[in-house]
């Protein structure tokens, strides 16, 4: 039920992000979604791609520091309160969200979010118990093939 995400350490300087993206582009790797966390000094680029192992290899060959982490993709109704309702599931279960970002695609009236938890398995269990749809890898990539 979990997805692999790549995190890349970047210095906060012109060219740091474009270099990483160009490397992936040249190898024909498409980015399904990404998010960039930044501080004054450095940034962390987080990526979801289809073939994470290949992307990792490409980035590491460029000298980048890459970490693979597990994240959870969750469907959320695209209406006011959709996210708030979802977050209450975590709150009730005492689960802390480390960070989150969104996929750019939408299916009907459902949006898709990426969550990073300290303990993703516990989060998945809590979501399933609350009957919230967790999108697995197969399902995710199928949607992107449409």
């Amino acid at each position: 039920m979990k997805l692999k995400q790549l995190s890349v350490f970047l210095e906060n300087r012109p060219g740091a992000l474009s270099g990483a993206c160009r490397g992936l582009a040249d190898a024909g790797v498409n980015l399904i979604t990404l998010c960039l966390a930044d501080t004054q000094q450095f940034g962390i680029l987080r990526l979801i791609v289809r073939d994470w192992a290949k992307a990792k290899e490409i980035l590491m060959a460029r000298g980048a520091v890459v970490k693979v982490t597990e994240v959870v993709a969750v469907e959320v109704p695209d209406r006011p309160g959709g996210l708030a309702d979802l977050l209450e599931v975590f709150e009730r279960a005492g689960i802390n969200v480390e960070y989150m970002y969104a996929f750019t695609v939408k299916q009907e009236d459902l949006g898709l979010l990426v969550f990073r938890f300290h303990d993703p398995d516990r989060a998945v269990a809590a979501l399933q118990a609350a009957a919230v749809k967790v999108v697995n890898e197969v399902e995710l990539f199928r949607r992107f093939d449409l």
């Binding site: 995190s7 350490f9 501080t39 450095f42 520091v65 970490k67 990073r116």
Partner: peptide, 18 residues
């Protein structure tokens, strides 16, 4: 230089290291 061992994926972890 950040290495794989030091890299913690979250901004908080890196700030703490710093």
């Amino acid at each position: 230089e950040v290495t794989a061992e030091f890299f913690g994926d979250t901004v908080g972890a890196l700030e703490q290291l710093r």
